[in-house]
Design a protein around this nucleic acid. Structure first.
Length: 372
RNA sequence: GCUGGAGUCGUCUAGUGGCAAUGACAAGAGACUGUAAAUCUCUCGCGCUUCGCGCUUCGUUGGUUCGAGUCCAACCUCCAGCA
């Protein structure tokens, strides 16, 4: 069983430590999105230096390239990409949502590779097998993220997610036994709560997942902070307290992190910070700025004077502006360092404020400035 | 000086009688939430009451034509070759 210690609680919020075979994660924590086994534009050394505690890779992408067997041969994800801290893998369930031409059945999901059109099938079992080959510490169950906003569709997807969770659990137990036999390190499974924007479905899904022998929970299918607080209140009041909860895909907006942590989520991952960095949208305490805007041409001040990241400590907005305008790859690197550092740092500050007992004050002060 | 070629939005470029005029770049702005994203969208002659209207544009000046960036003439500039 994955070990999770809670150091402090405040309402639904908690400060904890997840103990994985690759080290601890002090929660709440922002997990870097390393979809294809890399955080785009960043080296693992840079990720370390900016304070990241964990990364999350994607099973779908790694199945396509380079193949999960290859990663196993490499010695697992950590050895393959030189990230020797905790790792997560997403199951590939999100691709059901995001790729066209997916055929969903009870058995699993068929789709064509977006790279060369080869036909592909992922089932709960094959997703588990693939994730074990990748060898991350924490796996996500293979879930059905519905495209539709229709309640009936949501409900059907949720029930399918539950049925698949049973199969994920079984397969996971089988693979865990094999791992013990082979003296391999433990890997853990999170069940995923679905239900869309319907809190009665969320409650049902949370209840279902809560009863399963899983190590933690992913909360999936969330796309905006609207209604998120209520939903998380519902879900996290039902989920057992002693297991960690990961809010899947949220964290582009600082608000997501504050609400997520306040209402009981422990870890977050999001592609937003690095994607926006590559596109020139950079975090500051006063909101995001587009560094490509002409007004930064002669701005020789740092992006965020009180920021501790490599980018802010060494370079001016004018320099970043120049790098972006000339399309230098360094632009994306420095911007990614800053944005990733920003969300990691803010989440760490949320943790600290909870420990210090001034979360509400910190939240109010941060958000009123950021979204003014 | 002669012969041939060329001059179109900031740049390069499409255009051979119906055109405010193609595409790319540059420029300006916006979007991005379990990454088919170093991507995508919009604006880009001027002015308005901006799913429209008006005005002014394709080296210059004239001409032919209902209509000219497109045809004709002269001139200017540039390139190549010959003197």
């Amino acid at each position: 069983m994955l070990k999770f210690d809670i150091e402090k609680r405040e309402g639904l919020a908690r400060v904890g430590v997840i103990h994985t075979p690759h080290g601890d994660i002090k929660t709440p924590a922002f997990v870097g999105a390393a979809t294809r086994a890399t955080v785009k534009a960043l080296t693992m050394k840079q990720m370390n230096e900016l304070g990241s505690q964990a990364i999350l890779a994607n099973t779908y992408h790694l199945i396509l390239r380079p193949g999960t067997e290859l990663i196993k041969k490499a010695g697992g994800l950590a050895k393959f990409n030189s990230w020797y801290k905790p790792t997560f893998t997403d199951s590939g369930g999100f691709q059901i949502f995001s790729l066209p031409d997916v055929k969903i059945s009870e058995k699993g999901v068929k789709f064509k590779s977006h790279i060369d059109g080869t036909k592909f099938e992922i089932t709960p079992e094959s997703s588990m097998q693939a994730q074990w080959q990748i060898g991350a510490d924490i796996h996500m169950a293979f879930d059905h993220l519905a495209k539709s906003e229709d309640k009936k569709d949501m409900e059907a997807a949720m029930h399918r997610t539950h049925a698949w969770l049973d199969r994920c659990v079984k397969e996971n137990q089988k693979l865990a036994k094999q791992a013990v036999k082979n003296h391999e390190s433990e890997q853990y499974l999170y069940g995923i709560v679905q239900g869309g924007t319907f809190n009665d479905l969320r409650a049902e899904s949370a209840k279902y997942c809560a009863d399963q022998p899983v190590d933690g929970f992913g909360i999936g299918g969330v796309f905006t902070a609207d209604g998120m607080a209520e939903m998380l209140k519902t879900v996290n009041s039902i989920l057992p307290e002693n297991k960690p909860r990961h809010l899947l895909g949220m964290g582009q907006e600082p608000l997501d992190l504050f609400i997520g942590a306040e209402f009981g989520c422990d870890t977050f991952d999001c592609v937003g910070p690095t994607r926006m960095a590559r596109n020139g949208s950079l975090y500051t305490y006063d909101g995001r700025i587009n560094i490509k805007n002409a007004k930064y041409t002669y701005d020789f001040t740092p992006l965020m004077p009180d920021c501790d990241c490599e980018c802010c400590k060494n370079y001016s907005k004018a320099y970043l502006h120049h790098l972006f305008k000339t399309d230098e790859i360094t632009a994306k690197i420095l911007a990614s360092i800053h944005n990733e550092h920003f969300v990691v740092f803010v989440t760490d500050q949320i943790r600290q404020s909870l420990l210090d007992g001034n979360f509400q004050k910190y939240k109010q002060q941060f958000l009123s400035r950021y979204y003014k």
